[in-house]
Structure formats: C-alpha cells, structure tokens
Amino acid sequence: MADNNQILGTRHLLGIKDLNEKDIQLIFETADTFKDVLNRPIKKVPSLRDVTIANVFFENSTRTRLSFELAQKRLSADTINFAASSSSVSKGETLIDTVNNILAMKVDMVVMRHPYPGAGIFLSKKVNAQIVNAGDGAHEHPTQALLDAFSIRERYGDVAGKKVAIVGDILHSRVALSNILCLQKLGAEVMVCGPTTLIPKYIKTLNVKVEYDLMKALQWCDVANMLRIQLERQDIRYFPSLREYSMLYGLNKEILNSLDKEITIMHPGPINRGVEITSDVADSKQSIILDQVENGVAIRMAVLYLLAGQR
C-alpha cells in the first residue's frame, strides 16, 4: 500500500495546459476504476463524503452540469447548484463577490463555467478554494478533452500514434483547444479541418495540421471529432449559410462509406443533426458519442477524487 500514492501536478484543474502526460495517465487509471464502480449494483462510494462542491454555471449547459453533478453524487460529495440566470449576478454582483459568498458557506471546491476565457484562472488566484474549469469561453474545457481522449483510449487501447481530425468551428471552440493539447501530450497526431474563416490564423503554432477539405481530412484520420457550429458566439457571418456549411463540412453516411477504412466518429454534444453530422452517422456503430457521455462521469469522478485528495 506504500508506493501507489501519486499526485496531480496541480491544485486546480484550469486547463489541459497545466497537466503533463503523467497527470493525464493518472486520471485515466483512476477513471478506469470509477468506470468499474459505475457498473456495480451500488454505484456509489463514500470517498468525498466530507467535501462540499458548488457548481457555478454562468453559461447554459446540460451535459456537463449533469455529468459533474452525477460524478459528485456518486462520490458522496455534498453539492449546491448555482445558475447565473436565476441569481444576484443579474443584480450586478461581481464574480469574486459571488464566489466568496458561496465559499463563506464552507464550500471546498468550485466547478465553474463562464463565458469569459480565463475566468477560472482569475478566480483561482483570488479565492481560497479548488477550482475546476467546466469551460471558459473559447479557451479550455479540460474535462471534455480528457473524456474524449479516454474514449479514444478505450476504443483503440492507446492514444499515442493515433490520427485525430477535429472538424468544424475551431475558432469558437474551447473543446478544440483542450483536445489539441491533450491529444498531443498523449502522443497523438492532430489535424484541424473547417472553413478558412473558422480556423484561427495562429493555430499552426500549436503544431497541428490544417486541412480545408473534409474528404482529405477523413482519409487521413483514425478518429473524427465533429464539432458544433457555435452560432451563439458568431457575432459576424463566417460562412454564407448553414446549408452550404453542411454541404461542404457535414458528415453523412455516403461519405463515411466511400472511405476505404472504418473511422471512429466523436461529437462533444449538443448535436445539430443534419448540420455537422447526419442522424444515420450519429447513430451508427462507428459513432462513440454515447460512450463519451458515459465516460464523462467516470473522468469527472477521477478528477474530483484526485483533486480533493490532495491537501
């Protein structure tokens, strides 16, 4: 029992940027056992019974919030939920005041989603609690990247050496950035694909391949991660119409069948059926979209367990 205690290199989970390969593998190994726990008749363990976690969501979310909440409940943590839309934030309270008020009620950890990039990093310097970033603007979404890589690892046994294409709205996507960092740290090759207007100019500095032709990207990759077009973040028009986007970058069964190999399809959700992928692709055997959701709970349990355990 002596030498199997390991520790993450960070006190908060603000981004994949702060993790190294060892940290990610540690999270995966821990998630493996939690996945096992989730398949038992009693899916609950008492590890976090003296930990209180606040889920602070300044932006809409269903999957991530439910997944975090379920992970916390499976670990026996006490949780409180906070949605900005129904709170005093609309009365003009600042972020630090809001969070400090929550912490005054003796909360140990804060899971936060915020529309501004770096909100989690800012908060981690100002308040005395462990922060888990559940998405900050177009910056990072670390748990999503971890669960995506975990799902690839589950499908292929290892992430190293795999070719992953991230297709869609790279410019507005926090999933894309976290995924690129996470997959590269694990030794995978990453390509981004999308319309020129939706691929940031400096993306090449991250050492990723850039491809503007969907067909070529699909022929290259083992795994295609299809991102959603984030219309709510598009202040100007980046492409003429959704229909044109879906004709050029939408994935359908014919394209999939025309490839000479079987690739794996991923999607971080929510799916706009008929835009980035069609229903027959989303529900096909090659799609691991629902496995991603299942793995999300195990990954979030592992992250919370490892963070809460270090003092």
């Binding site: 029992m1 199997n4 205690n5 390991q6 520790i7 540690l26 190994e29 821990t30 493996d32 056992t33 096992d36 726990v37 363990v45 008492p46 590890s47 976090l48 003296d50 930990v51 670990l75 367990y305 490892l306 809460a308 355990g309 270090q310 003092r311």
Partner: peptide
Amino acid sequence: LDITFFRDDFRRRESPLVPNTT
C-alpha cells in the same frame, strides 16, 4: 476487492491513493 474509495483517511493524508481493480 479494492478498498481505496472506502478508506477513512481520505483527505487526511498528503495525496490520494491510486485505486486497484476490483
């Protein structure tokens, strides 16, 4: 049987224990 998640010294030691398989 792995007992890691049921230990009574979680958050009382420096770092969490890495679980084994059940």
